[in-house]
């Protein structure tokens, strides 16, 4: 559906300043109904990728196509709903006026705009605030107003740049449910986030991006398998004898800050527990599988420093 081919983009910060490569050789294919998340540290090139996809900036090299048509010839805006990170909306407009503009700009009739706007505001608990100037909104409310603006014309592709940023737990849950709902409707969702937990729960595929490069694309099967199979226990640094006693039961032993992290299949929990007890090894902490994704992420960042 969307194909990004060998994209390169370098920013020129100004005269006599060194050029900054933002995206380097990014290739990615997004199929219809995919929910794909891009994760990476600040400056990894995630937002630049989104801006290239929206036509706000042009790649130096490479091509983008939408449904097989080059981006500049495809009226992609009719099919796309976009939420930027920290959306700056018009201070003196009300949410109703903003949505009326969104509807008109997207070619919707007034009746359709009212109906869709009403539904979205209801879903995101914004109905009460619909007549208030946007400058009186909190950060979370602005984020939700931005989501209403992006989704008003019922786009088939939804691009969300840090959709959970600045939201309180209730707001996060609301947005999470909305994205799940969109996923259920078969929408193609492309989003960037720092919150790995959300990315992991929502995405079918996760792209790890560091220094402008797309390092790895993990499929749901990869991290789901990882999650079901492994448990991780943190223990003090073990001696040779203890390690050899535990080794047959473990799938991985990692060293971290003077401690050992023991990974093993969930079904081996009883055996590992008994062995640890027998060896008199104290368990300092357990780790969820989520941390594994975090570790993968951190590992990728470290490798590319």
């Amino acid at each position: 559906m969307i194909e990004l081919k060998s994209l390169y983009k370098t920013y020129s910060p100004g005269l006599f300043k060194k050029k900054v490569p933002a995206v380097r050789g990014l290739s990615l294919e997004i199929n219809h109904g995919d929910v794909i998340g891009l994760v990476g540290p600040n400056g990894a090139g995630k937002s630049t990728t989104i801006r290239m996809l929206l036509g706000l900036i042009r790649p130096d090299r490479g091509s983008i196509s939408f449904r097989g048509v080059p981006l500049k010839d495809a009226d992609i805006q009719y099919d796309i709903g976009y939420l930027p990170e920290n959306p700056y909306l018009y201070d003196h407009l009300t949410l109703e006026e903003l949505l009326a503009f969104s509807g008109r700009a997207s070619g919707l009739s007034s009746a359709e705009t009212k109906k869709r706007g009403g539904e979205l505001m209801e879903k995101l608990a914004m109905t009460e605030a619909r007549k208030r100037p946007l400058r009186t909104f909190s950060k979370g409310m602005l984020q939700r107003a931005g989501i209403c603006f992006a989704l008003l014309h019922d786009p088939s592709v939804v691009i969300l740049d840090e959709p959970m940023s600045g939201l309180d737990p209730v707001g996060r849950k609301m947005v999470f449910d909305l994205v799940t709902d969109l996923k259920g409707q078969g929408k193609t969702i492309f989003f960037c986030s720092h919150i790995l937990n959300d990315v992991e729960r929502l995405c079918d595929r996760i792209g790890l991006m560091v220094g402008g490069r797309l390092l790895r694309v993990l499929k749901r099967e990869d991290f789901a398998a990882h999650g079901e199979a492994s448990l991780h226990l943190v223990v003090n640094r073990l001696g040779e004898q203890e390690l050899s006693g535990l080794h047959p039961l473990l799938s991985d032993i990692a060293e971290e800050s003077g401690r050992h992290v023991l990974s093993f299949p969930a079904k081996s929990l009883t055996a590992v527990s008994e062995q640890l007890h027998a060896l008199n090894v104290e368990v300092l902490a357990s780790r969820s599988d989520r941390l594994s994704l975090e570790e993968m992420f951190m590992q990728a960042v470290e490798e590319n420093r």
């Binding site: 929206l54 706000l56 805006q77 976009y82 930027p84 959306p87 700056y88 018009y90 700009a105 992006a150």
Partner: peptide, 13 residues
Amino acid sequence: DRKTIHLVLSKPI
């Protein structure tokens, strides 16, 4: 300045 234009140009304008 405030990048509101990103939001506006994401619409078919």
